[in-house]
């Protein structure tokens, strides 16, 4: 389906003056890849030469009918897991994937404990010494 769309875009653009060098899908995939020579930019956004080359490669592979997964795997083979902006779902990286869920559960549990304890304390009678109680009684008698 996507190939068809690309071919159609290609045909349509043949009729127009401009040449669509890079399809929007290139940027979508590029946003999932790290620019290898930049400090912290994606392949979609970086202005560096190597990112430009990678975008052209992605475009070529899209036209050739490769899927997003295959294109990402292509770069992963050459640059390692590190080039993927989404860490792979295996090994130590599972910690990162699990962490939001763990944090969420932890937060909910702690919150519930805190509220439960607060409500119990509010319901429990005050711990007051008999002296203080006598003082309050005396003051009340005076007032009224």
């Amino acid at each position: 389906m996507r190939v068809l769309a690309l071919i159609l875009i290609g045909l349509v653009s043949l009729g127009q003056a401009q040449e669509v060098l890079l399809d929007p899908r290139v940027f979508e995939i590029g946003r999932q890849l790290r620019c290898p020579t930049c400090i912290a930019e994606t392949v979609a956004d970086s202005a560096e030469g190597i990112s430009g080359e990678m975008r052209l490669i992605i475009q070529e592979q899209l036209v050739a009918g490769k899927s997003e997964g295959e294109i990402l795997a292509f770069f992963q083979e050459r640059y390692g897991d590190w080039v993927l902006l989404d860490p792979p779902r295996r090994g130590i990286y599972l910690l990162v994937w699990a962490s939001p869920v763990v944090v969420g559960l932890l937060a909910v549990v702690l919150l519930m404990i805190y509220i439960r304890r607060g409500q119990q304390q509010a319901a429990a009678p005050l711990d007051v010494s008999s002296d203080e109680l006598e003082r309050v009684r005396a003051a009340l008698r005076q007032e009224g």
Binding site: R31, R34, G80, W82, L85, D86, I92, Y93
Partner: peptide
């Protein structure tokens, strides 16, 4: 953390 523990290099980016 990953680098300190295992020496591997990994990237966590915008999608995450």
């Amino acid at each position: 953390i990953v680098e300190a523990v295992s020496g591997q290099l990994v990237t966590i980016g915008a999608p995450f």
